[in-house]
């Protein structure tokens, strides 16, 4: 009981700190944190699959990137898209893609599942890379941020970076709360049961395929939400947005933080992005520009993390006070 309260206090503390950040931080940091929170939403959506349902997807960026492209389509040239219209549309697009890909990949499991999710994401990559539908390999610009107008009234403007920040913070909190509710629901219990022992779930009478597919679609839609706002913030979408480095990166965030916890996904996203920034800022050593070759350090860091942190960053805390998984959290 005490443990849960500590976690809640820490979470609330973080939320308040994030809410106060724009008062003290410069524009650069506000935008940086906006980006980090978007990646945290993306990572949580993947955590639902990897950490809770036990489906290791290496193609999650496809849903992230597709929604970005959807925004680009919805905002042709210099016209801004309507947020209330284009956001649901983009998320529905990602969900639809997840439905199609999920129906295929969920026929496999284990190692196959990893390879097949990667391969189908690559297929989407080539769709945008090789054809002219959205600028090909060069990508496409989103010139204007979506407008949040309802019948002429505009409650906030995404062109304002502080407004953008608060919208994303709100979404982060909403998605977190939504997933917490979901995980406590009968559906949430079923997907965790599937991760622990899918065969037994079937023999108890659950049609596990349906639950996995529903989870895949929901996760795809949430990744789409993150991708939509990331495209809006960055003003640009390219095939790399849905490339496999993006998928690998977000998987790393989930696992680094500690999967199956949601908190871990957020922690992982923030840590990875700050690390990236830290590595990029390193000075040259001799002739080698370390900052430019930051991926070298990141790769080495990932290798070390796998070997040394079997339960992610949150697992470090658990070393101090072990906590059995009771299925009631």
């Amino acid at each position: 009981m005490r443990k849960i309260r500590v976690a809640t206090v820490v979470l609330l503390g973080c939320l308040i700190a994030l809410a106060l950040l724009p008062l003290v931080a410069e524009k650069y940091y506000i935008q940086l944190f906006t980006k980090m929170m978007l990646m945290a939403i993306f990572a949580m959506s993947l955590d639902l699959l990897v950490g809770y349902t036990g489906l290791v997807s290496l193609g999650h960026a496809a849903f992230f990137g597709l929604a970005g492209y959807a925004l680009a389509f919805a905002a042709p040239q210099y016209q801004a898209a309507n947020l209330w219209l284009s956001l649901p549309l983009a998320m529905a697009g990602s969900a639809a893609l997840a439905l199609v890909i999920g129906a295929l990949v969920l026929r496999t499991s284990g190692i196959y599942f990893i390879m097949v999710t990667l391969a189908f994401a690559q297929m989407v990559f080539f769709l945008f890379h090789d054809t002219k539908i959205a600028g090909g390999a060069d990508g496409i610009y989103v010139y204007a941020k979506p407008v949040a107008a309802i019948a002429g009234w505009e409650p906030f403007s995404l062109e304002n970076h502080t407004h953008f920040y608060f919208v994303v913070l709100l979404l982060l909190a909403l998605v977190y709360a939504l997933l917490r509710v979901l995980l406590a629901s009968p559906f949430g219990r079923v997907i965790v049961g599937i991760r622990v022992n899918e065969q037994r779930m079937r023999s108890l009478g659950y049609r596990t395929f349906r639950y996995k597919l529903a989870c895949f679609v929901l996760s795809g839609a949430l990744a789409g939400m993150a991708g939509y706002f990331a495209a809006a913030q960055f003003g640009f979408v390219s095939p790399d947005t849905l490339g496999w480095h993006q998928s690998g990166g977000v998987l790393m965030m989930v696992i680094l933080g500690g999967m199956g916890t949601l908190n871990g996904a957020i922690l992982g996203a923030f840590t990875m992005m700050l690390l990236e920034l830290g590595f990029q800022g390193l000075p040259a050593v001799g002739e080698v520009d370390i900052g430019k070759h930051w991926q070298l350090l990141m790769g080495g860091f990932i290798v070390c993390a796998v070997l040394l942190l079997p339960h992610g960053l949150l697992g470090l805390g658990r070393l101090v006070s072990p906590r059995p998984e009771t299925g009631s959290d």
Binding site: L182, F187, N197, R210, A214, P324, G327
Partner: peptide
Amino acid sequence: IFLPFTAFENCRLAAQSRLPSSMRF
């Protein structure tokens, strides 16, 4: 059985399977 879950949760999951659907969110 589901080793990480409590005995109660093991049975609760089993009983829950008799809801018309567990697509309840």
